[in-house]
Simulated scan of single mutants.
Amino acid sequence: GKKVDVALDFEHDQWQYAMKNDVDCSNTSENLERQWSNGSGLASIKQRVRENNGQVAVEGTDTTHTVTVVLPHIKEIH
């Protein structure tokens, strides 16, 4: 891709981080799910986020590919 948009938001006691690039990723849901298990960086992201009680979403269109990560805010670290 030639362009990436990155956004970090804090709302309702959680962090949301979204990365969107301009790569043609017109994948079906089935193809996107396959990406989770092919040893890509997406598999590592999904594992680490889930270990920290978060969620990951991956979406593809004809012109973009977006990965969104949502993590709860930790108020205290012991």
Rank of each mutant, 00 (worst) to 15 (best):
Gly1Glu: 15
Gly1Trp: 00
Lys2Leu: 03
Lys2Asn: 09
Lys2Ala: 04
Lys2Thr: 03
Lys3Leu: 08
Val4Thr: 09
Val4Arg: 09
Asp5Leu: 06
Asp5Trp: 09
Ala7Gln: 14
Ala7Thr: 13
Asp9Pro: 00
Asp9Glu: 10
Asp9Ala: 10
Phe10Arg: 03
Phe10Thr: 02
Glu11Thr: 04
Glu11Tyr: 12
Glu11Ser: 09
His12Trp: 06
His12Tyr: 11
His12Gly: 03
Asp13Asn: 14
Gln14Gly: 05
Gln14Met: 12
Trp15Tyr: 14
Gln16Cys: 06
Gln16Asp: 12
Tyr17Leu: 15
Ala18Asp: 15
Ala18Arg: 09
Met19Ile: 13
Met19Leu: 14
Met19Pro: 00
Met19Ala: 11
Lys20Gln: 12
Asn21Ala: 02
Asp22Ile: 03
Asp22Gln: 09
Val23Leu: 10
Val23Pro: 03
Val23Ala: 10
Cys25Ser: 12
Cys25Trp: 06
Ser26Trp: 09
Thr28Glu: 14
Ser29Val: 06
Glu30Asp: 15
Asn31Trp: 13
Asn31Gln: 15
Asn31His: 08
Asn31Met: 07
Arg34Ile: 03
Arg34Pro: 03
Arg34Gly: 08
Arg34Ser: 13
Arg34Phe: 10
Gln35Thr: 10
Gln35Lys: 09
Gln35Arg: 10
Gln35Ala: 08
Trp36Pro: 01
Trp36Ser: 04
Ser37Arg: 05
Ser37Ile: 08
Ser37Tyr: 15
Ser37Cys: 07
Asn38Met: 10
Gly39Ser: 11
Ser40Ile: 01
Ser40Leu: 07
Ser40Phe: 04
Gly41Lys: 02
Leu42Cys: 06
Ser44Glu: 10
Ser44Gly: 02
Ser44Val: 02
Ile45Pro: 00
Lys46His: 08
Lys46Tyr: 07
Gln47Cys: 04
Gln47Val: 03
Arg48Cys: 13
Arg48Glu: 15
Arg48Phe: 13
Arg50Phe: 10
Arg50Ser: 13
Arg50Thr: 11
Glu51Cys: 02
Asn52Phe: 12
Asn52Met: 14
Asn53Leu: 07
Asn53Trp: 09
Asn53Tyr: 11
Gln55Val: 02
Val56Trp: 05
Ala57Tyr: 14
Glu59Gln: 14
Glu59Thr: 14
Gly60Leu: 03
Thr61Gly: 11
Thr61Pro: 04
Asp62Cys: 01
Thr63His: 12
Thr63Ile: 05
Thr64Leu: 01
His65Arg: 07
His65Phe: 12
Thr66Pro: 03
Thr66Asp: 10
Val67Trp: 00
Val67Lys: 01
Val67Glu: 06
Val69Ile: 15
Val69Arg: 01
Val69Ser: 05
Val69Thr: 04
Val70Gly: 00
Leu71Met: 09
Pro72Phe: 00
His73Phe: 09
His73Pro: 00
His73Asp: 06
Ile74Gly: 07
Ile74Ala: 04
Lys75Trp: 06
Lys75His: 14
Glu76Lys: 08
Glu76Tyr: 11
His78Arg: 08
